[in-house]
């Protein structure tokens, strides 16, 4: 018996270690190349021991102005997430507690999430040109609400389900109004869930590509669009591409380290049990 379980342990570590290597090695390779100078970056066979340089990061930040694209991504993701959380939490609470809108409502929310972005990008492109919302933060925030708001409502519904109804009833008997119950009793109890929903929604916005590609210009380009345009402009500026890729990933990975437990909890409740 002991022999068998030891064998299983070894095999598990072999497989999990292998999978981890498949994830880590490409990332480490890009990280390594982001510190390589122009000559080293193009060398095949590759040079593994070279003097690292920050030239690529300098070029990306100073010459290509990635700071402002970074800021665009941050503004749009933060604003969308805040709006989605404020509207979505209220709606999710009503749908969970009062079945507002009947059985159709959760289905309608789910249906909006099925919508392929290409379906909406075409009309948005035309409308935004007409009303002057093309290449503005507000325009991009509007389009991001199309997928973020239903996502947040969906996640929050399952979080509120976990807050016992007795809490609501006790507060009602104590004379609190419906909004008071929501604001002072249920919301604080669901705070970890709101945190998880907020982070997940932020990540979704930060990484979005199609809307940003079609609806932003020089003023409001987000990071993914800026990186993609770097490729077409520069052919194969390997070092700069690697540095900008690292700049796009780094904040998300940092966020992730901070909220790992929330993320697992958020998905186990929201996406799966929803």
């Amino acid at each position: 018996m002991i022999g068998e379980s030891r064998w299983v342990q070894w095999a598990s570590h072999l497989i999990l270690g292998g999978a981890s290597a498949v994830i880590l090695l490409p990332l480490l390779w890009v990280l390594r190349t982001s510190f390589a100078d122009k000559v080293v970056a193009y060398q095949i066979p590759p040079d593994l021991f070279f003097a690292p340089t920050l030239d690529n990061y300098r070029e990306v930040l100073l010459r290509f102005d990635f700071g402002s694209f970074f800021l665009n991504s941050l503004i749009v993701a933060m604003a969308t997430t805040l709006i989605a959380l404020m509207l979505g939490a209220l709606a999710a609470y009503a749908i969970d507690r009062f079945r507002t809108g009947g059985p159709v409502m959760p289905l309608a929310i789910l249906a909006t999430q099925m919508m392929p972005p290409i379906v909406l990008v075409i009309p948005f492109f035309l409308i935004f040109k007409q009303v002057g919302l093309a290449d503005t933060h507000v325009g991009l925030i509007i389009t991001y609400l199309t997928f973020n708001l239903p996502y947040v409502v969906w996640l929050m519904m399952s979080f509120f389900k976990r807050v016992p109804r007795e809490l609501d009833e006790a507060a009602l008997i104590d004379g609190a109004g419906p909004f008071g119950v929501f604001w002072r009793i249920v919301l604080p109890a669901a705070l970890p869930g709101i945190g998880a929903a907020g982070v997940l929604s932020f990540v979704l916005c930060w990484n979005e590509f199609l809307f940003a590609l079609m609806l932003t210009g020089q003023q409001t380009k987000t990071l993914p669009v800026a990186i993609s345009s770097l490729v077409t402009q520069q052919g194969t500026a390997i070092g700069a591409v690697c540095a900008s890729t690292m700049l796009a990933i780094a904040p998300m990975v940092l966020v992730y380290f901070a909220i790992r437990k929330l993320l697992v909890a958020g998905l186990s409740l929201g996406a799966v049990k929803g």
């Binding site: 981890s20 490409p26 990484n207 993914p224 993609s228 490729v231 890729t245 796009a248 998300m252």
Partner: peptide, 24 residues
Amino acid sequence: FYLLVLMIPVLMTPVAVALMFRLM
């Protein structure tokens, strides 16, 4: 440790993933 590493791709924009593999 395994969980930490295996979750990293979730956080990456497809653009970054695609560029990484275009290079490789």
